[in-house]
Amino acid sequence: MKLAVGPLLYLWSREEIMAFYARVAALPVDIVYLGETVCSKRRILTLGDWQLLAERLVSAGKEVVLSTLTLMESESELRTMRHIVANGRYPVEANDMAAVYAVTEAGGPFIAGPHINTYNQATLELLSDLGAQRWVMPMELSRDTLMQMQQKRPDGLQTEVFVYGRMPLAFSARCFTARNRNLPKDDCRLCCGDYADGLSLGTQEGENFLTLNGIQTQSGLVCNLLTELPALDELGVDVVRLSPQSQHMEQVIGAFHDVIQRDVRPEDAQEQLNVVAGKEYCNGYWFGEPGMAAR
């Protein structure tokens, strides 16, 4: 089972992004997804910058995938997506059918991202026929559904599961971070950049509920399937995805790596991780329960 670092979902500064991927280059991950998937107004890095980062990561022995925007509304967003598809070197994670369209027109391999709604084997077959090399399971599907998907998975199609991080749950035309700051989206001043792990939304009773990340809404709790890695392995999952958070990513990557390598028992790895990252997690979707539930 390979370990992947998913696309960075937050707006960090250029220095923070460079420092993060410099660390990732030295860490035991196999695949790194690069690019902006949330908001086209975030232009801290150009496609050229991402490609430069990609070169460095490849030099460090990583497989690189270029990710595309999830919600595409404007002509300029389509143009950027087409540039990414035409990069000529790296496979592309398609996060919208517009990208699937572009990538199949170009005849290239692609990864069907978590926001392509792959809920059944007929869709798996379609994606495989179109040239997908891997699919990422949607956030809300369970272990039992995955088991059935795996049984009828087309030959050669890999499966990837989101196993760590705040889950991207919804996208909107509206920017909720700008709304909180009383700024119109057209003059958002990139205020989402003030929140390295998104802006916390709590209930009136103080319960950590959701995370606002610009036009994206994430889970309040971090999803964590560390102790389920043996089950994922048994189901034939090829890749597990860790979504970048600003804190403790080295320890998180280390913990998942150690369990995949069978160097450390999952429960022990979890206990060690709890010491640095705390015990507040969710994993309900995996068990067929509400996503925010924890077992």
């Binding site: 919804a170 309900g284 509400p290 996503g291």
Partner: peptide, 15 residues
């Protein structure tokens, strides 16, 4: 408010 077909907020809370 969300892009239809891409919102899992309800299942996050209720399943």
């Amino acid at each position: 408010v969300m892009v239809e077909g891409r919102c899992a907020l309800s299942s996050y809370v209720t399943g």
